[in-house]
Design a protein around this nucleic acid. Structure first.
Lengths: 112, 112
DNA sequence: TTATTTATTTTAATTTTTAAAATAAATGCG
DNA sequence: CGCATTTATTTTAAAAATTAAAATAAATAA
């Protein structure tokens, strides 16, 4: 599929949401809040690198801070291409979730 | 992630949408309408089998019809567990797409 | 100088995705 | 009948993504 995977979508949205605080471990925390699931560190850093390579994200390294363990962080920011990919997935999403008939399990999704 | 993958979500939604016509090749056609992408046959049948094994779908085989090539079809139907998994992914989705600040690329998603 | 903390990278196993080929079972037609 | 065509599912093998775990790095604390 040439559509963002779930993980890619959630990571891009995390970067968007976190603004100036979008770096690896912080993104991981945000994903935990979103999903309730504790992802491994690699499960965040590996796709971050891929998303950058593909041009959905750009990054730069900060200076270290004077907090304990405050080494340099790699911050991320969405590119225009990244926003475009999110826009596309949102469109597919809305399309896929619309017009669903009642199947009587006590739930029909609220109209997007 | 213990959340449906994109493909799994779209397949479950296709089964929901197609009702009495939810079988392999027809699901593949529906996915093409949703995404504009021509998936290989295996890209549909393989996850269908997995979704059934995990209890998100149930299936039964039809009698052949008297159309040309009209051999027996394997029809699918969502289980309660399948609907629950969709409900979960929808919740995460809505959460992830809400409260995004303006980042000035000329687009901010419409609320949910 | 050793421990602790925050952070990123690497690695290797598993799982998912995909494309392509194989198989199956039906009708159409010379 | 027998061979072609159509609709349909299964199998397989390669590629890509996901994950967990361990390694590495660089800072402060004690």
């Amino acid at each position: 599929m040439d559509i963002l995977s779930r993980m890619e979508e959630l990571i891009l949205l995390s970067v968007w949401k976190l603004q100036d605080e979008a770096y690896g471990l912080e993104i991981r925390k945000h994903l935990y809040e979103l999903t309730g699931q504790d992802l491994s560190v690699g499960a965040v850093y590996v796709p971050l690198k891929r998303l950058k390579k593909r041009g959905y994200l750009e990054s730069w390294d900060s200076e270290p801070t004077d907090e304990r363990g405050g080494r340099s962080k790699r911050f991320f920011k969405l590119t225009q291409k990244g926003v475009g990919a999110l826009q596309q997935v949102k469109t597919v999403q809305e399309h896929a979730w619309s017009g669903l008939p009642d199947i009587g399990f006590g739930w029909t999704p609220s109209k997007s």
